[in-house]
Amino acid sequence: MKRVIMFMSVAAMATVLLGSCRKQPLDNLTEEESRIYVTNYDDKAAFNSYATFSIVDSVAVISNGASARELTSYDQQLIASIKSSLEARGYVAVAKEAKPDLAVNVSRIDNTSYSAAYNPGYWSSWPGYWDTGYWGYPGYGYYWPSSYTVFRTRERSVSIDLLDLKNPSKEGNNQLTAVWNAVLRGSGVWSSNNIGSMVKAVFDQSTYLTTNK
């Protein structure tokens, strides 16, 4: 019986020790491979019905309880890249006073507290995000379709949100609907060197985002 118990103990220890002899995925990633690009869209939106857009003049930096608007070199490049990508899809950039069909909010999210789960668009209720009054709809809120994919998070990320100004209350009173959203996540998303490839990726996977269909 002693031998059996001894064997069982050795087997249990071996199970734990040898079980740890597995591939370690986080050690097997480049910085580029660590990133994911998530795009969400409102399936009720007709993207070819929009013609014009306006993009914010700075980036909201959203972190736990703190807020700021910044226009660093990174932010300028990011805004320019989004703007040119939308123009390449046929949308015309106009000033926000010219009643654009779409508004583009851009945010850097520095989420340092662990959140087990969150609702999509959670960043829109945090200090630092643009009030709907910025787009000429004071007193409005934001509406995020419930089908949006979300992840648990503890990280730095970037969010690009396209808001429907053409139909400002289509989901109820005083709500601007987010018809498209892109989230850039992973290592190096706040690095200027990666802006071009990241923005290209989210537009490449959003072929419906065009005036031509």
Binding site: Y37, D43, T149
Partner: peptide, 18 residues
């Protein structure tokens, strides 16, 4: 692709069986 969303990623798929 997922419901009303798309995710671009490098996936590492693992399963440990004991």
């Amino acid at each position: 692709p997922d419901k009303n969303s798309d995710i671009s990623a490098v996936q590492q798929r693992t399963l440990q069986v004991l």
